[in-house]
Amino acid sequence: MLHKKDKKMEVSAIENGTVIDHIPAKVLFKVIAILGLDHIDKPITFGTNLDSKKLGKKAIIKLSETFFIDKDINKIALVAPQAKLNIIKDYTVVEKKVVEVPDEIIGIAKCVNPKCITNNEKIVTKFQVISKREVQLRCHYCEKITNQENIVII
């Protein structure tokens, strides 16, 4: 359980929007890139290197007036499979969501195979997700498998 002091620091309330919690601290910037948060003009608050029993160090993102469709938010499952979303309306959590790795990944990740055409010509990558628990991606083009530990976000 969080101490009272931490709690105050982490939950500076937003009126309407989305809170993404339980992001491993080391992938915060990947999550920012995947969701394209650098192009959003609404207020965003980031917290990182916060203590977490489950993740060691975690990060949290609070986005005012911003909501995601499942298809978009599920993309972060590649790097933050335990991420949790709180949808806030009028200072109240109206919905909680977990992310799920989609069946197909388009763009986002790089193929692990240096001899793959996608690493040599300007091509949007495409993968079939063949395992979701320990994420494994099969490249649509070269058919090689990229494992979780080798996933590089473009």
């Binding site: 193929c111 195979n113 001899k115 793959c116 055409i117 996608t118 040599n120 010509e121 091509i123 490249c139 649509h140 083009y141 070269c142 058919e143 090689k144």
Partner: peptide, 28 residues
């Protein structure tokens, strides 16, 4: 025939005519 893997799949999705892969690197 092309030395890069996945080149044949990529090309087959671009062409208006059918394509036969005669070898794409170590792939197929």
């Amino acid at each position: 025939r092309h030395p890069l893997e996945g080149s044949a799949r990529f090309a087959s999705e671009l062409t208006t005519v059918p394509l036969i892969n005669a070898g794409d690197g170590a792939n197929q």
